[in-house]
């Protein structure tokens, strides 16, 4: 094995990404009008229990058939105007991106993930003040799972979205303090 290169360090996303990273339809991963669409939604909180209005969430998940191949076209653009066209309404890209609003809330409309084992949506959290992003998982149901089973009950609960009416799932993210979300490290 050759010598491994040293990684480029992470930095905070800062406060001024709003005109650069979010894009129209970033949270509309499900093809428009799809009857199976679900909504994952919630708030992002800091260690004082205040909402974070300047967090950016990236989402990645398996397609309903379990495919992890993804598809391009999440941020499809118009070559004539340079503006955003939106997704094509047909392909499922598996990728979503939503900035929290002034109330610290986000919403992602997507299709149920079909990954092996317990279904979950992977979440990557960025925010001003967060110098290195955080990974977590929104599980859509409780059940046997190697990660969940390795956690004490109160911590396990932070990874399980609460099912509401009309195919909605509430998943809050707490960066610090009471009810702090379980964040993950991949090895």
């Amino acid at each position: 094995m050759s010598e491994r290169l040293l990684p480029t360090p992470s930095h905070t996303i800062g406060p001024f990404y709003g005109h650069a990273l979010p894009f129209p339809g970033g949270g509309e991963v499900a093809p428009q009008g799809h009857s199976e669409a679900i909504t994952l939604h919630g708030y992002v909180f800091d260690g004082a229990g205040n909402v974070i209005p300047d967090a950016l969430l990236d989402f990645w998940q398996a397609a309903p058939d379990g495919s992890l191949n993804g598809a391009p076209g999440s941020m499809r653009r118009d070559p004539s105007t340079g503006g955003f066209l939106g997704r094509n309404g047909v392909d499922f890209t598996g990728f979503g991106r939503v900035a929290t609003d002034a109330d610290g809330q986000y919403a992602l409309r997507t299709l149920p993930p079909g990954n092996a084992g317990l279904p979950y949506i992977s979440v990557c959290v960025f925010a001003r003040g967060l110098v290195h992003h955080l990974f977590t998982r929104a599980y859509l149901t409780d059940g046997a799972d190697p990660l969940l089973d390795s956690l004490p009950a109160d911590r396990r609960a932070t990874l399980i979205a609460a099912e509401g009416t009309n195919r909605t799932y509430r998943f809050d993210i707490r960066l610090q303090g009471e009810g702090e979300t379980v964040f993950l490290e991949f090895q």
């Binding site: 260690g47 391009p72 993930p113 955080l134 990974f135």
Partner: peptide, 29 residues
């Protein structure tokens, strides 16, 4: 700004040995 925005619990390690782990693949553009 980092004071209230970093977790105090240690990160939980996920074993990367399973290729079905969703995070070992990623979005494509």
């Amino acid at each position: 700004s980092s004071l209230l925005r970093h977790p105090k619990q240690p990160l939980v390690a996920v074993d990367g040995g399973d290729p079905e782990t969703v995070e070992l693949s990623g979005p494509v553009f």
